Simulated assay, not measured.
Amino acid sequence: MATAAKFKNRRNTTSDKVAIITGASQGIGQATAIRLAREFSRLVLVARNRANLAETAKAVEGAGAETLIVDVDLAEPAAAQAVVDKALAAFGRIDALLNIAGAVPQIDVFDMTDKQWNDGMALKLHGARRLTIAAWQALKASNGSVVLMSGNSAVSPKASNAAVGTINAAIAALAKAFSDRGIEDGVQVNSVLPGPVMTGRRRSYLEHWAPQHDMTVEEATARFPKEAGIARYGEPEEIAELMAFLVSPAAHWMTGATLRMDGGEVKSV
């Protein structure tokens, strides 16, 4: 389903452009949508949870942008084209696509089932791939930008997060492939590798993990940054600032880049 909300008292933005943000119902996706309302006057908010999308839309409209809610499951093959069709019907153009949707469970490589592998790939990898392809001609027409969300595990996979690392590495490689075509077509494509970010999903994980290891949630929360060799968790709003930069005119010559924002977690050059 899709709903367009016209914001009558829209404040001035730097452009009348349109951005699609997936995973916009929570976490980094939600923070990115709210941040982009400063620069994009029309935002297409995509996720499965319509109620949470409505909360994001309220914040985005309060920041001055018009919204279109599209509640779909991007793991479904037909969903990507549906998102693009609705965005173009409502707003007539697409200037930026930020592929943020997709959570992959952190399960040991020997314990992951085929279904868990396939479900993770269907949403995070294939959902982003299909949506980028579906939006490509509109992005080509606008000399637009694409960002694909990967993660630090792409460059530092472990047995405990094999699926996350494998899928994130594939996304980073996919972004490189899209950027190569984008040089010819005038579409900028980059990928972002966040480190540990304190999202609602991470809080839920810590609340589940802590009692299983005879810890309080506070103790578990303090433990993981130390193990990662960082001072603290990142915040969704910090990643959102990087996303906003990548789809801004200031970064338009940056393409094919794989950017880490991780508080120093990855120690290699």
Rank of each mutant, 00 (worst) to 15 (best):
A5E: 13
K8W: 09
R11L: 07
N12T: 14
N12P: 09
I21Y: 02
G23I: 00
Q30C: 06
A33H: 09
A33W: 03
I34A: 00
R35I: 08
L36A: 04
L36M: 03
R42D: 05
V44W: 01
A47V: 01
A47E: 03
R48W: 12
R48Y: 09
R50V: 01
N52E: 02
A57V: 07
K58F: 08
V60H: 07
E61Q: 07
E61D: 06
E61F: 04
A63K: 14
E66D: 11
D71C: 00
D73P: 02
D73C: 02
E76I: 05
A79P: 10
A80S: 13
V83G: 01
D85S: 09
K86L: 10
A89T: 04
A90F: 01
G92C: 02
R93E: 14
D95T: 04
A96L: 11
A96N: 10
N99P: 02
A103E: 14
V104E: 06
I107R: 09
D108L: 06
V109D: 15
F110D: 08
M112H: 12
D114I: 09
D114Y: 04
W117G: 02
W117N: 04
N118H: 13
D119H: 12
D119W: 13
G120P: 00
M121E: 12
A122N: 05
H126R: 14
A128G: 05
R129V: 11
R130V: 07
R130A: 00
R130N: 06
T132N: 09
W136Y: 01
A138F: 04
N143L: 13
G144F: 09
S145Q: 13
S145T: 10
V146P: 00
V146Y: 03
S150H: 12
G151A: 06
S153V: 14
S153C: 06
A154E: 02
V155L: 09
S156L: 14
A159K: 06
V164N: 07
N168V: 10
A170H: 03
I171K: 01
A172W: 09
A173S: 10
L174K: 01
K176A: 08
D180C: 07
R181Q: 07
R181K: 15
I183H: 10
N190M: 00
S191N: 00
V192M: 03
V197W: 04
V197C: 01
G200Y: 11
G200F: 12
R202S: 12
S204D: 15
L206K: 07
E207M: 14
E207V: 15
H208N: 14
A210S: 01
P211S: 07
Q212S: 12
Q212V: 05
H213R: 05
T216Y: 04
E218Q: 14
P225Q: 10
A228E: 15
I230Y: 11
A231W: 08
A231T: 06
R232N: 14
R232H: 14
R232W: 14
R232Y: 14
E235S: 15
L242Y: 09
A244R: 06
L246Q: 01
V247R: 03
V247P: 00
S248K: 08
H252L: 10
G256A: 02
T258P: 03
T258L: 03
T258D: 00
D262M: 05
E265C: 11
S268I: 14
V269E: 10
